[in-house]
Design a protein around this nucleic acid. Structure first.
Lengths: 361, 361
DNA sequence: TCTCGCTATGTTTACGCAAACATTCTTGAA
DNA sequence: TTCAAGAATGTTTGCGTAAACATAGCGAGA
């Protein structure tokens, strides 16, 4: 024993000779533990734990001694140990889809911020493609990743309710406007936005408003289209057929070329700014001036929309609030408060810029 | 002591005697543990662990028995326990800044994908504002969050080297082109991109190329501007002063109005597509046609750039590769392979569309 | 035949923390 | 004076896992 031990010591010494003295690395690269702090402060580990967790039954002087020791040693509680002991991970998973849009980015940012403020970290789960398999795969990964709750951000309605068989004990919030998954929803008020856009064009005096819609698989697209149609009908106007794009500028361009050839067409409501941009390009190419010949309203209010040519009148979405409210809801669920259901809608705002005007007489 | 021990034994016996019928919910809402699987398969916990970790020294029949038990019980390894035991968390932290750009989004997506494929989860750490305090705050939070490595995505050079005092034992990669933090860098080849853009305009026959630059605080902006200047000088042209924008379309618009008034100005290289877009709008307003009167090249290749009016010639950045390579580098560091330093550059590509042409004679 | 050395498997232990329980000390009322 | 009640603090234990160590079984070479 002694010999073996000595041999090893000699070896280490040799190795250490060429390196640093390595004072604290002795315990691997791990930081100081609660026990180290306890020893430094001359108290028991439990007392350190109490201070660490802000319990009140610790004498002021003791608490200060412990806090000093913590600071001196650079102590940080080990979340893994905490999680193992408590079964809670202080972490929120976010499932979102690969080709994430501008809006999702903003939403994600708001989610991360709100979660962080509540003391939760955010774990990102990328999903590629809208197939069911990958989604449940993401869910499995989530399970392994020990999160206390999940936010699911849908681009489109890619899931049946059965496909997202989240366990009952895992709180979830879906950012989408299709109530029916059985989870709480948070989303922009799509219907209100579409109505604002359509009414704006009608109030300007346009006799008809065409719609460049998103893909039929998207619930937000569907909602926008439905609300557009209903607004027209309430005004006693029969809605023209919806032209479905796929959110891309390219599809907006294609549809713009199509409907732009109709000289009677003087007003367009596009389901997002990108398709509006594509349509603008198409109209330019067709020699139709905006807003003199055709008015167009988008949806989203991208930062760039200000600088489109002409600056785009559009519906502003408050992604930040969507993200914040979803986390608030999730936190409530995790606190066992809400039953976990219902839809929260976030209002929109019409931003009038230069792409809309009264129709030429 | 003996007595105490005996008392306890008696107690345990009693507890065991009244063993609850509650089969699985007994242990709280926690899933089955390795011990449950072991019992079900009739082996020791260690053998289950071996199967779980794919070690080879387990007999085929035993392995199958364990795998079946796992499947039946829906066993999932507990990451917290694993992390506690091993000191590794299989998690990568990403520090990024609030006003995240399109490019960062794509990069983040690539990071999440690559990390996920390597069995790592991604923890997001939002940082608000470029002040030093918040950054080190983010770092502190990261520390608490138990990550094995960090990717830092810089928008601008917001940090001095001293400010990001990451500990020596925490592998890190910075996505930025300023070598000098002491960490490995991955970034788009800014210089190459700027050169491609400038040369393209020169080859078209323009006698001079103006530059709408990003903010001086940004290293990528600085690199693009330097490379632009150098390319001009190599062609024997004295570079005009750089006009600094702040990446926004608005600033591009402002600068566009300024330099657009100069009738000798026939070519612009903008440091990003958004500023290019703003400049395009300004030129439109000034009555200067693109590309007939003025040619303009952007940088980034946003999806929308195809549909600008006219479609924008620009420099394509491969954000996906940037993200992937940064994770590869990080994984290598975590495997103890690379010393952790050096710059990896990702090539760019000139995409010629309709916003550039030979100057009018 | 007997040991050496290998493989398959079991047992013990510690990771860091905090709940549960135990102990000491203080204070004030009987 | 005595002790009940409570506050401050200490001790034990176990969360789920995997490394380290221990044991059993078995074939090969001496």
């Amino acid at each position: 024993m002694q010999e073996g031990s000595r041999g090893k010591t000699a070896k280490s010494a040799t190795a250490a000779g060429t390196r640093k003295p390595i004072p604290e690395t002795a315990r691997g690269s791990r930081g100081p533990s609660i026990a180290d702090v306890a020893q430094a402060a001359g108290v028991s580990a439990q007392t350190v734990s109490r201070v660490s967790n802000g319990l009140t039954n610790v004498e002021e002087s003791t608490r200060n001694r412990v806090l000093n020791a913590m600071k001196e040693l650079g102590y940080r509680p080990n979340r893994a140990a905490r999680a193992l002991k408590s079964g809670r991970f202080k972490s929120i998973g976010v499932i979102m889809f690969t080709l994430s849009s501008f809006g999702n980015m903003r939403t994600l940012d708001a989610i991360a911020t709100a979660a962080s403020q509540a003391g939760y970290s955010v774990t990102l789960i990328p999903v590629h493609g809208p197939t069911t398999g990958t989604v449940s795969g993401a869910y499995n990964r989530l399970r392994e990743q020990d999160v206390d709750g999940v936010v699911i951000i849908f681009e489109a309605h890619m899931l049946d309710r059965a496909d997202i068989a989240l366990p009952d004990d895992l709180p979830a919030v879906v950012i989408d406007s299709n109530a029916g998954y059985g989870y709480p929803m948070v989303d922009t008020d799509q219907a209100e936005g579409a109505r604002l856009a359509t009414e704006h064009l009608l109030h300007l005096g346009h006799a008809q408003v065409w719609h460049i819609g998103g893909p039929p698989s998207s619930f937000s697209a569907t909602h926008r289209a439905e609300s557009w149609k209903q607004t027209l009908e309430e005004a006693g106007i029969e809605a023209p057929p919806v032209c479905h794009g796929d959110w891309s500028t390219e599809s907006g361009y294609r549809i713009g070329l199509e409907i732009g050839r109709n000289p009677a067409m003087t007003a367009i409501f596009a389901a997002n700014d990108q398709m509006a941009l594509g349509a603008v390009r198409a109209l330019h190419e067709l020699g139709r001036s905006i807003p003199d010949d055709v008015s167009i309203v988008g949806f989203d209010d991208l930062e760039e929309s200000t600088s489109f040519w002409p600056p785009l009148t559009t519906i502003h979405q408050d992604f930040h609030t969507v993200g914040r409210l979803s986390i608030e809801n999730l936190l409530q669920q995790m606190a066992g408060q809400s039953p976990g259901s219902g839809v929260t809608t976030v209002p929109t705002r019409l931003v009038v810029r230069k792409s809309t005007a009264a129709p030429a007489r």
